[in-house]
Structures are given as C-alpha cells and as structure tokens.
C-alpha cells in the first residue's frame, strides 16, 4: 500500500461524482491518508487462506414466490421527482451511452 496521493483522491472523487476544489483536495488527501495509515496494521497480517466474510451470518437461498404485489401509484412516484415530463423523470441531456 503506497501512500495516498492527491491524484488518487481526485480520481475517486470523479468516480464518486463529487467535485473538490484545491483546498478540499489537500484536506481530504491528508485526512484519508491518515485513516489509511491506521489501516496499515491490516497490511502486515498474513491472511492467505482465510476466507473473506461479506455477510455476518450464513443464510442461503432466501427467495420469494413469483406473485405480483401492487405497485405504487404513479402520482405518488412522480410527486417526489425534481422534474417530470410525459409521466417520466426528466433529466438534463445524457452524454455517454450506458456501458
């Protein structure tokens, strides 16, 4: 784990769709570097062969029956939208295609 750079923080901010000015970028770089520095104690551990735990308990096969439940009323759905047109959520133009 090399130290966290300003460029790293700028890159994750872009990925996370958050804008940072120069002052914020410096501050966040310092703060995040500190937290990651604290996480260095994990780096030293030999955890080869240890299975990762993504879930605290081992439930499996939790499924529901394929039975229709009522959807929300459209008026209620769209009432919360910042902008609506033609019964759809309206957003400024989309520049790139979906991956």
């Amino acid at each position: 784990m090399a130290g966290l750079s300003r460029e790293d923080v700028a890159k994750v901010a872009r990925l996370a769709r958050i804008a940072l000015d120069d002052v914020e970028l410096d501050r966040f770089t310092d703060q995040l570097a500190q937290v990651l520095e604290h996480a260095r104690d994990l780096e030293a551990l030999d955890l080869a062969g240890v299975a990762p735990t993504a879930h605290p308990h081992g439930l499996v096969n939790v499924v529901r029956d394929d039975v229709v439940r009522a959807s929300l009323e459209r008026t209620e759905v769209l009432a919360q939208a910042p902008d609506v047109a033609e019964d759809r959520f309206s957003v400024p133009r989309i520049i790139g295609e979906a991956p």
């Binding site: 047109a85 033609e86 959520f89 309206s90 957003v91 400024p92 133009r93 989309i94």
Partner: peptide, 8 residues
C-alpha cells in the same frame, strides 16, 4: 438531445 426522460 436536450433532455432525457426515464421510465423505470
């Protein structure tokens, strides 16, 4: 396009 409309 100027705006996009989304149907979920």
């Amino acid at each position: 396009a100027e705006r996009s409309l989304v149907d979920y």
